[in-house]
């Protein structure tokens, strides 16, 4: 109880910072909400407020390929790509996270390589991968070069999260499981994974969204068929109707659904743990 909060009157700085925070949240969400509203624009096709004759017409327009390009196709590539990246990110960063729990020769080098992969400008990497594939005689494709490009960015994130999660995992859990006769595989399956599961969901969330929204790293690596962010990029230059906003709304809703799914499952697990099943 040493750090129990002081319930005195709040200092003036509280109100200043609360105002700053509120403004920041408005700044963060305001434009997104504007786009959300304007995607229901009526046939006036106006790109700005006010909203006249709200309708769903731009959502219909979106999925008829004659004007807006291949949105449905792009979505059909982006979604599986994001799911593959998510799956591989969880698998690879979790196993690598465990490897890093003990010191081994080369661990520092791999760690710094992961960090460098995180900070190298996406465009530089994009060129590099394109050139590499060219020299290997391979064609760039969303399921090959783009997948690798996404992984090179999602994996370091996943690894950092796993460091944080595993750093808090007390080795005595594993020792206890071992003492009680669990094999190494049983220890992982029945003790470690259940404990670090919320962290794994966080890694999955990063894997999915980083890939689903990634632009610079996809740009040169997807080959001839666009992913969704690239499709939107093309649309920004040649589509001047609220269909663009409608697309924004649809992708944002997908993102929010994924975020809500991830966060609520973490919350449910934590709640189960604190209350008992």
């Amino acid at each position: 109880m040493s750090a129990s909060p002081s319930y005195g009157s709040r200092p003036w700085t509280f109100y200043v910072l609360a105002a700053l925070f509120t403004l920041f949240v408005i700044f963060l969400y305001g434009p997104m909400i504007a786009v959300l509203i304007l995607s229901f624009q009526g046939p006036s096709a106006s790109l700005v407020f006010p909203l006249r004759d709200p309708s769903l017409m731009w959502f219909h327009e979106l999925f008829s390929p004659r004007r807006t390009g291949d949105v449905a196709g792009a979505f059909n590539r982006s979604l599986p790509l994001a799911l593959i990246v998510m799956f591989l990110t969880v698998l690879i960063s979790v196993t690598a996270g465990f490897a890093f729990r003990r010191r081994f020769r080369g661990s520092t080098a791999i760690f710094y390589m992961a960090i460098a992969s995180l900070i190298v400008p996406g465009l530089v990497l994009s060129i590099g991968i394109l050139v590499t594939f060219r020299y290997l005689g391979l064609t760039a494709s969303w399921w090959g070069s783009a997948l690798g490009a996404h992984l090179s960015w999602a994996l370091p994130f996943g690894l950092l999260i796993m460091f944080a999660v595993l750093g808090r995992l007390n080795p005595s859990y594993e020792e206890a499981a071992h003492d009680l006769g669990a094999s190494r595989w049983q220890t992982v399956k029945d003790v470690v994974v259940p404990i670090v599961f919320p962290g794994m969901i966080a890694v999955a969330l990063f894997g999915f969204t980083l890939s689903y929204d990634e632009f610079p790293r996809s740009w040169l690596t997807v080959g001839t068929k666009n992913t969704l962010p690239l499709e939107i990029w093309t649309m920004t230059t040649n589509v001047t109707s609220p269909a663009l906003y409608a697309l924004g709304t649809v992708t944002t809703i997908v993102s929010f659904a994924v975020i809500a799914l991830a966060l609520s499952s973490i919350l449910i697990i934590q709640r189960k743990r604190s209350r008992g099943k």
Binding site: L28, M32, V35, L205, D213, L228, P229, I232, W233, T236
Partner: peptide, 12 residues
């Protein structure tokens, strides 16, 4: 917002 599309956030 970090987990949503950067391009959409720009356009908005």
């Amino acid at each position: 917002p970090f987990w949503t599309s950067n391009i959409i956030r720009m356009i908005s």
